[in-house]
Design a protein around this nucleic acid. Structure first.
Lengths: 213, 213
DNA sequence: TAGATTGTTAATCGATTAACAATC
DNA sequence: TAGATTGTTAATCGATTAACAATC
C-alpha cells in the first residue's frame, strides 16, 4: 500500500521501530495529535529528521496541524509489515529459544509463533507457550505444509550455518540469528543479527569513554 | 592503554565487535597475518574503511606486511575493555534472565556474572549457572559490598524504569536493557538497548523490500 | 484571515572511498 | 633493492540540519 520511488536508506529503516514505539506510547496516553517538533523533543532527535524520515513514505501530516497519532501509528505498522501477521518458527529449543517462545511481545506486534524444533529427544514433544517442539528432521515437511515467513535461530553456533542453509532452501524469507556468527546465505534470504555479546562490548567501550566531548 | 585524541564516531565503535569476531576466527584458523585487503573481502567492507577504523586507535599494522592477527585481536579486546573483566548482575530472573545467565558466551568474552535478583519468592534462593538469585530488596547492599560494573535488565516493562533508577543511584556505570522501553537516566549511566521486537520489525520491513536496487 | 506546521529544497556536516607518499 | 601494504590526506558521497514556501 505504501511507498515508493527512491530507495529508503537503512539508517532510516532502523529508526522506524523507535517511532512506532513512541507513537504507541502516545496512543496509550490518548494523545490524538502531535507535531514533529513536540515529537522531536520527546525522542531527542531533530524535527527536521522526523519530517524527512516520514516523507520517504509519503506525507502523513497536515500543515498547521501536525500528525494524527493513531493514523501515523497505523501507517508505521503497515510500512513495517506488522499487519501481515508473519509466522515464525524457532529452531533450537534451548534456554534462549524457550525464553523467546514465552516472550509475548512478538505476538503483540503481529508475529505469530507456529512451531519449534530441536534435536534433543527430551524436549521434543513438549509444549512451550502452546507451541509443540518437533524434531529438526521434520523441518522441511513442516515448512512445506505450513506458511512460515521467519525463522529464529537459537541453535548452537556449530549448527547455525547448516540450519540456516536448510531454511533458505525451504524458501524462508527472513532469519533472526542469535548466534555469534555471520551467516553466508543466498541473496534472497534476509538476515538480521541479534548479537548479545556485541551489545555488551559496545556498552563496555562506551562505559570507558563516557563524556568524551 | 590505547587512544586517543579525536572522538571516535559511534558508527566506528559499532563495527569493532565485528572486527573482533572475525579476528578471533582467523586466530582459530591459525592465520598469523592479514592485510586490510584480504580482511575486507572476508568481511564485505572496503579496505579503506578498515584502515581508517583501525587508525582511530593508532597504527596496528606494518607497511608491506599487513596486520598481525593475534596482536590486532588483543588490541581490539583491550580497546573494547574486555581485559578488565567487568562484573555483571542480572535483574529479573524470568525466562530471559535465566537464559542469559546460562549463556556462556559472556564469560568467554570476559564478562563475569556475579549475582541475580528477582522479586518472586519461588525463584529467590535458587541457583542459575552457579549464581544465586537474591531478593531485589538486597540490590543496594549487594552493590555496596561487591564490585558491579554492568546491570542487565530483564524485568517486566512496568518495573524497568524504576529498577534502572535504583541501579543508577548505586553508581552502576552501564545497563543492558532488554525491555521494550527507552530509559531516562542521568548522563553518567550508559545504556545499550537490546530490543528483539525492533530487530524483528526491521527484518519484516527488509523481507518486503529485498532487492530494491 | 492569521498562525501553525508541514513537505521539500538547499546548505552543512560527517562518513566513506580513493589515492598515494611513506616505509617496512 | 623491489614489492607490498600501511597510514593519511584529499575527493566523493550520503545523511542531517536549516530554511522557507506551500497550505491547512
Amino acid at each position: 500500500m505504501s511507498d515508493c520511488e527512491k530507495k529508503v536508506p537503512e539508517v532510516v529503516i532502523k529508526r522506524l521501530p523507535r517511532y512506532y514505539r513512541y507513537l504507541g506510547e502516545l496512543l496509550n496516553q490518548n494523545i490524538t495529535r502531535i507535531s514533529s517538533n513536540a515529537l522531536s523533543e520527546k525522542m531527542n532527535v531533530t524535527a527536521s529528521q522526523i519530517r524527512q524520515d516520514f516523507n520517504y513514505f509519503g506525507g502523513f501530516g497536515q500543515q498547521g496541524y501536525g500528525y494524527n497519532v493513531e493514523h501515523l501509528f497505523n501507517e508505521m505498522g503497515e510500512i513495517l509489515g506488522l499487519h501481515d501477521h508473519d509466522t515464525m518458527i524457532i529452531v533450537g529449543a534451548g534456554n534462549l529459544g524457550r525464553a523467546l517462545a514465552n516472550h509475548n511481545a512478538f505476538e503483540k506486534r503481529g508475529f505469530k509463533l507456529v512451531g519449534m524444533f530441536d534435536n534433543d529427544k527430551k524436549t521434543i514433544g513438549s509444549t512451550v507457550n502452546g507451541v509443540k517442539v518437533m524434531p529438526v528432521d521434520e523441518l522441511e515437511t513442516f515448512i512445506k505444509e505450513n506458511r512460515v515467513d521467519i525463522g529464529i535461530l537459537t541453535v548452537p553456533k556449530s549448527a547455525v550455518q547448516e540450519t540456516a542453509e536448510r531454511l533458505a532452501k525451504c524458501g524462508i524469507k527472513g532469519l533472526l540469528n542469535f548466534s555469534y556468527t555471520e551467516l553466508e546465505l543466498p541473496d534472497e534470504v534476509t538476515v538480521e543479527n541479534v548479537h548479545f555479546s556485541d551489545s555488551l562490548m559496545i556498552l563496555s567501550y562506551n562505559i570507558r569513554h563516557r563524556g568524551e566531548e
